[in-house]
Write a protein that binds this DNA or RNA. Structure first.
Lengths: 333, 333
DNA sequence: CTGAAAGCGCTTACAG
DNA sequence: CTGAAAGCGCTTACAG
């Protein structure tokens, strides 16, 4: 129960209430083993009765670790980070860390600095940071995903986008597709996937065809991209989108044009998001293994916090092709 | 530039570097007008050269306000909160507030308490809090959206779900639909919408038909719900989903069954999310006016922080029906 | 406008 | 195990 005193209780109040010293209260709070059971119980009872909660500001100022980590993302709308976050928490929760999320909205420059200044022990950067901002990150950092820039000394934990896109293209080639369009976007991952798409097309003796130069990757951008591709190249038999969300837009564009998927047009995405599942688009895609990525990123960050001078490492996770019903052999003309 | 001294600079260092007192540095930091231009410039130069950033822990302990607000959400996957957040920021950014987001993941009990203990000035609750947790919220609070429980003394800013659903049902009735199914979920908003759906059906002399009792509202749940409805009632001419995301699942279920939208089946959602836009589903839906809701919630919270003893208020925003191509008159049998 | 002083609520050694 | 002491880096009066 919260007491109704006008002043928030402190360890002094708890100590007095429990009949012990302030130091002992601090020891109990910090879970020290050198406290007798009865005294511990007395302190805990006092904490309960007074409704005491420690002042994090005072604790931090006195040198306690904040036990806070932050995941830096571009935009909440891009759900890529959700699995990542879950993976990070899987390895940090049991150590008592609180993991928050900061988005790079307008005014983010100061937002990120605020968060760092507020005393987090480390950040997982799952966003495209402007170079100048990346250089200013003054806490332990791990970059998740392929990014154009990264904080100095940060580890990198990413998917091998090149391998993922190559596997996807091999799948389409094996089905017999040759006339394949790509909807892309700006950013580190998109750039690598586009490069891999183009390389695969060239290896197959084909001319790469990509549209889209926007930073945003919403379904509406996929819709516009697909229409652009199909207007200029009605002969396409397959479209590969930068991610599943854009694939949804492409799906809707195909529908509006009266093209069935996969009968008239095969469609593939990337990420294996919930949208790609059998109960939604049933989309062929590439599983970025976000949860595992998060676990690796979390472990790397914890290790880096414990061992700040360790040289930066790069961990590349092989992604996994997920074949579903949205891709099929092209119709014979 | 960040200096490479082993110790983080403090106001003492800044004061010495600038040749002024520590108090003056504090005044400059806090933007006091009672500082001469030349001294201000000297302090600012020193701050720059030393790479000084204030210790928020020390400032908070000494009594400075944290200037931090948090939006409490259920799950990042439900993008309802994104517009809300934007609206909140529209009214709080200029006052220098940092607005973060906390999700109610596993272990959220302590997560929310951690966040509150860390000194936020107020929270916007956009989540279904367990009763016990809601009672523990010990900072200024505003509830956004219709919720089953709410913190004591909190304002409520919500859509009039009843009016929104009623307008949507009137639209379907006017088109000529009589055999209408509803896909619902648990939670405050869902409950109100379902009640309004059922009331509208009864007023029209019809028997209400609802499926779904899950707390989750993903597209896959909409898929399952639509199949359940159509398996039992193939005669349905329209389906209304709890939200746009579930409507997407229903859309995909219809497609898999060979039902065209809106030819064979009219479909409506709720929220006017990006998925409902003309370049994606082109879905008839109800605009929850999330940004405006956020603005109102932000203003209410700021007012409550300035005036903590003000009695709780309720602000109900009228939602807006958005008619798109997914609803049409039923096919004549 | 300035400077010395007190204090916010903790944690960390340190002597008992 | 305990208790008194110092100090973390600020802000807030307060006397100049």
């Amino acid at each position: 129960m919260v007491s109704d005193s006008s002043r928030r209780p402190t360890i002094y109040d708890v100590a007095e209430h429990a009949g012990v010293s302030k130091s002992l209260v601090s020891l109990v709070l910090r879970g020290s083993p050198n406290v007798s059971a009865k005294r511990r119980a007395a302190v805990e009872a006092a904490i309960d009765e007074l409704g005491y909660t420690p002042s994090t500001a005072a604790a931090r100022l006195a040198g306690a670790r904040s036990q806070r980590l932050e995941v830096v993302i571009d935009d909440y709308r891009n759900l890529w980070f959700v699995d990542l976050l879950e993976g990070i928490r899987q390895v940090t929760d049991e150590l008592g860390y609180h993991v928050g999320v900061v988005d790079m909205h307008t005014g983010a420059h100061s937002a990120l600095n605020d968060v760092i200044a507020s005393g987090v022990e480390g950040v997982v950067v799952a966003a495209e940071l402007p170079e100048a901002l990346a250089e200013q990150v003054s806490v332990q950092a791990v970059v998740a995903g392929n990014r154009a820039s990264r904080p100095p000394g940060a580890d990198l934990v990413a998917n091998d986008d090149d391998a993922g896109m190559t596997a996807l293209m091999d799948h389409l080639f094996e089905l017999g597709h040759r006339r394949i369009g790509h909807i892309t976007a700006t950013g580190g991952s998109a750039g690598r996937r586009r490069a891999a798409f183009e390389a695969a097309m060239r290896r197959a003796g084909l001319t790469p065809l990509s549209v889209g130069v926007d930073a945003e990757t919403g379904a509406d951008k996929g819709f516009v991209g697909a229409n652009e591709l199909l207007d200029a190249h009605p002969e396409l038999t397959a479209i590969v989108a930068e991610n599943d969300t854009m694939a949804l837009g492409a799906f809707m564009a195909a529908r509006q044009r009266g093209l069935s998927v996969p009968g008239d047009l095969s469609l593939a995405g990337y990420d294996d998001s919930p949208l790609a599942g059998p109960k939604v688009m049933d989309l062929t895609t590439v599983d970025g293994r976000g949860t595992e990525l998060g676990r690796q990123a979390g472990l790397a960050l914890l290790d880096r916090i414990a061992n700040p001078d360790r040289p930066a490492e790069t961990i590349l996770l092989p992604p996994e092709l997920v074949v579903r019903s949205s891709t099929a052999p092209p119709r014979l003309d």
